[in-house]
């Protein structure tokens, strides 16, 4: 799948829905961890594997720790993937 912002958003929203972690009013600025979606470390590990499977790479594997969907989208935009 492409790394266009809308495709990345679909992957993240689908993942949060599957794990029952999609907060009301989720947006590109909603924190993924405490105070937002509330992902723990294993759920974050799962998100990283999901992003890699769907989009071919993921920000966590490069050492980044994106805080929001917007930062994940920015990673793909910057990498030009």
């Amino acid at each position: 799948m492409s790394t266009a912002p809308e495709d990345v958003q679909r992957t993240v929203v689908d993942f949060l829905t599957l794990t029952a972690k999609l907060p009301e009013g989720f947006s590109a600025d909603t924190p993924l961890y405490a105070g937002g979606a509330g992902l723990d470390s294993l759920e974050t590990a799962e998100l990283s594997a999901t992003l890699e499977d769907v989009h071919g790479s993921d920000p966590y594997s490069t050492g980044e720790m994106p805080q929001t969907l917007g930062e994940i989208q920015a990673f793909y935009a910057a990498s030009g993937a």
Binding site: L42, A45, E46, Y60
Partner: peptide, 12 residues
């Protein structure tokens, strides 16, 4: 096991 940057590995 599948390598993972967050936890070293995850169950795959």
């Amino acid at each position: 096991g599948r390598p993972n940057a967050m936890t070293g590995a995850i169950v795959a």
